[in-house]
Design a binder for these strands. Structure first.
Length: 582
DNA sequence: GCCGTTTTCGGCCCGACTGTTTTCAGTCG
């Protein structure tokens, strides 16, 4: 059983919090940064440690000797000594407690010292019994806030899906634009970067009358509770999502948009680049601080050289504008400086869809209806890929070889009448050993075979996916990890190895655009493209409306630095046909 | 604990809001 990167990252984050609770300086942030990079690393870090040793682990940014050896320790012993010691010193449910709004590691430390609070239930009880207010540094207000937020922490497990947050972002920006004195309004944060899951929605407004905007925001009918409200900043809860508003001067909008879009790693790198140039970047602008004795004396020290537009901020640092999806601290600033940013694909480049379902399996509509809807969207082709029977299919879903034969005949007939090209395909199931449950001779007669894992979705899946990718009849590996966001983490996959095999075999790796999946994710797409693999953006639509998911796939591809030529579904139909035949 | 446009030691991004401790710490982004 492989140890997932998530799991390793969680251990180091816990250690970071335990150290922070004990007032240790700098180490907590070092552990958190390392944890973040371990989580995002495209290969399995535990396997890396086991097979190539700590040197290989140290090549991960922000991971040094000490953390690399702790990785190995965890892989070998299942525990980290230092973490065990810290847990013994501060035996609390750190993750659960710090998930309460307003409660951080220091608060956890103080409440444990004073009241012995270890769990969420004990925290709630201490608040109810008015014990928290007796602790130095805490008062009745803090106590009632904790009480109010404990419930929310229990309910809101994890983050919101991108597709849930996008409409909230659109609604709040429309509302503010329509009701308040707003000059410019945009969403920022992870939503603007199109991360698969969203912690909160960030709205940014340019206005000369911030108080009115804040008032309008706290009066927003969708807001169920006001978390905080100041003169230029406020937070509310809407549809169980935290929505943050920031109001800035119009002249500072670009700097603020850059700043609040993040990511944190990207911004830290950008600021360091600024310091090297005697500049200072903050949410108010870019300032020339050469010859200034104390650049930290205030927010707007020095001569402002940029701030009204976001591109101006980058320009002041000798950089071209960097698309928001790339701002994850994965080398985009170096690439920008070298003039080597990718020419990212856009939604209008998509010409078709190679993965969709009809009522033949678990879709809602007929073949004709799905083809008609694709035609209306302006697609040049679609490929119908209903489920084959096999491992992972339940409740009678999935076609036998005989049924696939019948569907093939019908698909040929529909193709003859349709305005667009209709490819005949199947979504076959990859079993635990990498085999498919459909007859090889039948697979060869289909235009496109999508092979996807639907069962045994834990542990390392690299070998079985490589086997499937190398199958001569397979054209696409569908939703390779099988993850479902906020539900299951799916297979552990060495994407580099899979992509290498896929590139050699002429098999495409799917970006499944269903917002519950977004599989492959951006970092994996980037790794796949580096190996020369072709990716394909498919919606896995089960009804016509789901074709709209394609935009989530496009933004995921952009997060993976994909150019149009990397993405099969942007190619002309003849080239797609040649790829599928090859 | 990590790292290098201050380069193997001495620093580590920056600011708003809240509550409480009357000058600031903690949290969050």
């Amino acid at each position: 059983m492989t140890i997932r990167n998530d799991e390793l990252a969680a251990r180091f984050e816990e250690l970071a919090d335990l150290l922070a609770a004990q007032d240790v300086e700098y180490k907590p942030v070092a552990y958190r940064r390392a944890a973040e990079n371990i989580r995002e690393h495209p290969e399995n870090v535990a396997t890396l440690a086991q097979e190539e040793g700590t040197d290989a682990v140290e090549r991960i940014d922000r991971v040094g000797e000490a953390i690399a050896s702790k990785v190995l320790e965890y892989v070998e012993n299942g525990e980290i000594d230092e973490l065990q010691e810290k847990r013994a010193e501060l035996p609390v449910e750190m993750v659960a407690l710090t998930s309460v709004e307003g409660v951080g590691p220091k608060t956890v430390g103080s409440l444990y010292e004073a009241l012995g609070v270890q769990t969420l239930d004990e925290l709630e009880a201490a608040a109810k019994n008015e014990e928290i207010r007796t602790v130095s540094g805490f008062g009745p207000k803090t106590e009632s806030n904790i009480l109010e937020n404990v419930d929310f922490a229990r309910q809101s497990q994890g983050r919101q899906l991108l597709s849930d947050a996008v409409p909230i972002g659109e609604t709040v920006t429309d509302y503010l634009t329509g009701t308040a004195p707003v000059e410019r309004c945009a969403v920022a944060g992870s939503l603007r970067r199109w991360r698969p899951t969203i912690g909160d929605v960030d709205a940014l407004v340019a206005s000369t009358n911030p108080q009115t905007v804040v008032d309008a925001f706290t009066d927003w009918p969708d807001a169920s509770r006001v978390i905080e409200a100041g003169t230029g900043k406020a937070s509310v809860r809407a549809n169980d999502v935290r929505v943050d508003l920031r109001v800035v001067e119009p002249a500072e909008f670009g700097a603020a948009l850059q700043y609040f879009t993040g990511s944190k790693d990207h911004n830290v790198e950008l600021r360091n680049r600024a310091i090297a140039r005697d500049l200072k970047v903050n949410e108010y602008g870019v300032f020339d601080v050469s010859g200034i004795d104390d650049p930290d004396a205030g927010q707007r020290v020095g001569d402002r050289v940029a701030g009204e537009t976001e591109s101006g901020v980058y320009d002041a640092l000798d950089l071209p504008p960097i698309p928001a999806e790339l701002r994850e601290g994965r080398g985009e600033i170096d690439a920008a400086a070298a003039g080597a940013l990718p020419e990212l694909l856009t939604l209008d480049a998509i010409r078709g869809d190679l993965h969709l379902h009809t009522e033949w399996s678990d879709g809602r509509n007929s073949i004709e209806e799905m083809v008609e809807a694709a035609t209306e969207r302006g697609y040049e082709y679609v490929c119908v890929t209903d489920h084959a029977e096999g491992p992972g299919m339940v409740g009678g879903v999935g076609l036998s070889d005989q049924q696939l034969e019948s569907q093939l005949s019908e698909l040929r007939a529909v193709d003859d009448d349709a305005e667009i090209d209709v490819f005949a395909g199947v979504e076959a199931n990859i079993d635990a050993d990498g085999r498919l449950s459909v007859d090889d001779a039948l697979l060869e007669r289909l235009d496109c075979v999508v092979a996807s894992p639907h069962a045994a979705l834990d542990g390392d899946g690299t070998d079985r996916l490589v086997t499937a990718a190398e199958h001569p009849a397979v054209d696409v590996v569908g939703h390779p990890t099988g993850r479902q966001l906020n539900r299951r983490s799916g297979l552990d996959v060495d994407v580099t190895a899979l992509a290498e095999a896929a590139a050699k075999a002429g098999t495409a790796l799917e970006i499944n655009a269903n917002p519950r999946r977004l599989d492959l994710r951006g970092a994996a797409v980037q790794a796949a493209i580096e190996q020369g693999a072709t990716v394909t953006i498919d919606t896995d639509a089960h009804r016509p409306g789901s074709y709209d998911y394609v935009r989530y796939g496009v933004h995921t591809a952009r997060r993976g630095w994909a150019e149009p030529s990397d993405v099969l579904t942007t190619w002309p139909t003849e080239d797609v046909r040649a790829f599928l035949d090859g």
